[in-house]
Design a protein around this nucleic acid. Sequence first.
DNA 1: TACTCTCATGTGAGCGCTCTCATCTATGAG
DNA 2: CTCATAGATGAGAGCGCTCACATGAGAGTA
Lengths: 337, 337
Amino acid sequence: MTRKANIYDVAKSAGVSHQTVSRVLNNHPSLKPETREKVEKAIAELHYRPSQAARQLVTSRSRMIGIIIAGTELYGPWAILNAMEREARVEGYSVISISVLPESPESWREGIEQLRNLDIDGVITIALPNVIVKAVEKSLTTATIVIVDAEPSKKFDSVNIENFIGGKIATEHLISLGHKQITHITGPSDGYEGQMRRKGYEEAMQKAKLKPDVIEGDWSIATGYKTGQNLAKRSNRPTAVFAGNDHLALGVIKALNENGLEVPRDLSIVGFDNIPEAEYVTPSLTTVHQNFGELGKFAIEKMLTQLRQSTKAEALTIAPVLMIRESTEPLKATKGK
Amino acid sequence: MTRKANIYDVAKSAGVSHQTVSRVLNNHPSLKPETREKVEKAIAELHYRPSQAARQLVTSRSRMIGIIIAGTELYGPWAILNAMEREARVEGYSVISISVLPESPESWREGIEQLRNLDIDGVITIALPNVIVKAVEKSLTTATIVIVDAEPSKKFDSVNIENFIGGKIATEHLISLGHKQITHITGPSDGYEGQMRRKGYEEAMQKAKLKPDVIEGDWSIATGYKTGQNLAKRSNRPTAVFAGNDHLALGVIKALNENGLEVPRDLSIVGFDNIPEAEYVTPSLTTVHQNFGELGKFAIEKMLTQLRQSTKAEALTIAPVLMIRESTEPLKATKGK
DNA sequence: TACTCTCATGTGAGCGCTCTCATCTATGAG
DNA sequence: CTCATAGATGAGAGCGCTCACATGAGAGTA
């Protein structure tokens, strides 16, 4: 069996020195075009590909980006990761995804450890509480950090959906339909995104001189369902709900249905995320659309520019879009006072 | 700034040779326990961690596993990947996920290329058509291959849900409820999983002496919706549908609703996958549960044993479970003939 | 003509490991 | 008491690259 070609094999075959081959590989400016051609021909003939390991050993740059992601089954993070992976590949970077359990510090530590061992160039955190970001910062001192879907930092680039605006337009939509009693179900209390959505809700309510009504939740369907059960039995049931995400909304709708209530007839509801299912459930879900693909793409772009030459930290945001569907309708005047 | 400690620093600090340190790192049998302790102490003190790159350069093993996955937004592959990543980490392996577009050969080629450059130890393909698996086999000759959710091969380990059985029990469930006109909407025609589910359906129908009725689809909600529209308008509308996956089922239900038809009153429907939403849509979806987590775990286990010492290829299968919910009910006798 | 200067290329060292081989004990067989 | 044998360690080479530096050829300047 012929062993894999290395840089010397190529050099010999092209009749140049190994260093010239290296120059071709790294696009060195001062190279005669004809030399470059010769080398490239030899590379093709020998099916040569440079050893990442050897490169990494000498440059101590791995061309790998670690992505730390909450190991949930949510659609959003996965969609983001998907976009990132593809975007990074185009630029010759690989992506190592590490899913951690936000509730288990040991789980993060392991994940971070793994990235350290790999001498990762950069780390992107997706929808992770601040504590974890801090831990990453502390342990991965040589890596460039980009924060996605979490509180922007002075030190690092961040990319976020305008969650505040999202929460606001969702609520304003309900208000404009005439609703006065609008309950908000939040995400987990330690999450930045949920907090901002909530603030958007509160601002909209305040502006309309309505009394906010907030129920703490998390991002799970099950919690939405439980909350829906309670809501259905409440004496002063709200006429509208702004759910922190689509899953919560789905759970609420289910619970209401089981209690003989119908959406939007008895209650209007807005979600957040615009998961693929949102359009196809019954009733189809009015929701705030997040462009996950763009989010991922921007994050990788930020990372790569930062890796090429570090610039000052910047907080990028993407505007959300309200998708109006069937789950919201004007408040009927039939109800007393 | 103190530079990162290397194996010589540790050796000096422990008063041994660099080779002894290497032996500690690799659990060499002939080592005095007291020497090992000394070295381990030095490692801890210096915060030493071995350079993956250097190791890889000399051993030409990267301790990385590439996962090629169809770059869709389906829940299943993501859930599998998630499980794999965690499982691999425990064993000190990292996972590089590559999402490719099944319809674009160039996209696979790029992905495979990337894995080649990284000198990956093994590759796991998830739900990929046979052509891609073949391409992987051809290009990544040195890597161990494990196939998940695709046609088992004589050469490689594979892990699959029993799709045939899944299709069969789903159909039998509908038959046992008295349905006679049962339509099946398939996955994409080039996919192994969909084919097997279809065969399970056909076998069940044949056994019950019923006429199969198959509509070709893909895995998307949108296609489910379109199919549902057609179904709703058909003169001899079936009384039950076995959808190739939950997304198709959701789409069908939506279309039926829009045409004034209700599930399960006017039509019973069974899905496949048991996505997190399945339990919480209205009506909740009767579906065939796939244990994605287990699938991923088994695949990694297979991979690791294969990497340690290659054994003969084995095809592992996991039994699916029918989850009976609200979207199916007995056929009402009221209909004529 | 002698000189700097840039362009184009070559030479050797070294990144941090593991490999192979060599060395130096102890131990027990003859 | 000598010699083979296994156990515990050390020394040096080399994996495949890039880096810093050296060299030579031609162009521009005085």
